[in-house]
Nucleic acid binder design. Sequence first.
DNA 1: AGCGATCTGTAGCGCTCGCTACAAGCCTGC
DNA 2: GCAGGCTTGTAGCGAGCGCTACAGATCGCT
Lengths: 182, 182
Amino acid sequence: MAPTRMSRESLVPLLAAHVLQNGLAAASLRPLAKAAGTSDRMLIYHFGTKDALVAALLEYLAGMFAAALDTAFPKDRSASRRACAQTVYAITEEPQFAPFFRVWWDIVAGCSDDNAAYLDAAGGMMDVLLAWVVDHLPADDPDPQAGARAVLTVIEGAQMLRAVGCGDIAEAGLAALEGRPA
Amino acid sequence: MAPTRMSRESLVPLLAAHVLQNGLAAASLRPLAKAAGTSDRMLIYHFGTKDALVAALLEYLAGMFAAALDTAFPKDRSASRRACAQTVYAITEEPQFAPFFRVWWDIVAGCSDDNAAYLDAAGGMMDVLLAWVVDHLPADDPDPQAGARAVLTVIEGAQMLRAVGCGDIAEAGLAALEGRPA
DNA sequence: AGCGATCTGTAGCGCTCGCTACAAGCCTGC
DNA sequence: GCAGGCTTGTAGCGAGCGCTACAGATCGCT
């Protein structure tokens, strides 16, 4: 195809696209290279190690996540903490988010092995999401910092329940939260 | 060692112990066999397939989980929905639960690939936990079914945040929930 | 005792994994 | 123009993977 020189920067988006389609845990060098139009040999050349490649990939995915929050999510504030959680839950139910969540649970599983790159990526994404929630709580929330943490906790729980096929529990759980700030 | 005959039933606990120490995603036949004092050859003989072995393992782990709820967790009811969630969070913080959670996040990640065995195991564990929460809400909770779903959602969210190194968010989030039933 | 079914060890198949050795291209600076 | 670096292709290494073929060993049964 394009005979242009390759670099980490040009490769990472192509690799990320493949990972979003096929999962992170199952990603190995040869299929990744094929998806990026190169060879495993060159991936090692550019990144040095598969671990370094995955670390670059995680950083890129965290950036993608932050960008997605600014585009796919509404700009206005919610009417209540509960409504804020339900909004995020409903939006992330859209099918275009499924690939991202598949990777997300691979990241969470990777964190359980105390892998620094995974922990960094996950922590970064949670920080971004927490800041977003703070900005989208009702303007009259008495304690946005605490409220955002409560909302983020229920959001993540709901998404885990949905991931394991218990979306009904998640929806009922969200609906049963307090409607107004405590 | 003991030259006694082996069977699925006698093997599964030994295999489960190895998986709890080393994770589920990384488990392969030869190390599993070594941990159980046999050979990969015999594991395939008894289970037919690695997938079938994993399915049996997941079923066993789900049973272990149900049993653990009855022993490690308090018998009395909580004073509030929030207290119930905080109790479960505090107990599962004990180090002896770490191996179980490592496997748990592997299961969640496996569910994202629509693997039936993983979905069954995860759904079973959530059902057991949900029933436990129903029984441990305050006796005067106005809607135990809905309340238990809300509590379960925040518990799972808190545990995910803890898994990715954001335990501080989880604890603040739990503390900011409503103290009494909505 | 002897036969058939049930178990188990040895060896190895074909495959993929991350990674490397070696050599050839290519592009830049003198 | 040509020397020396940066980039790339080919081929393969050693290891581990799930799984199987084959041959004994062992057991229950008549």
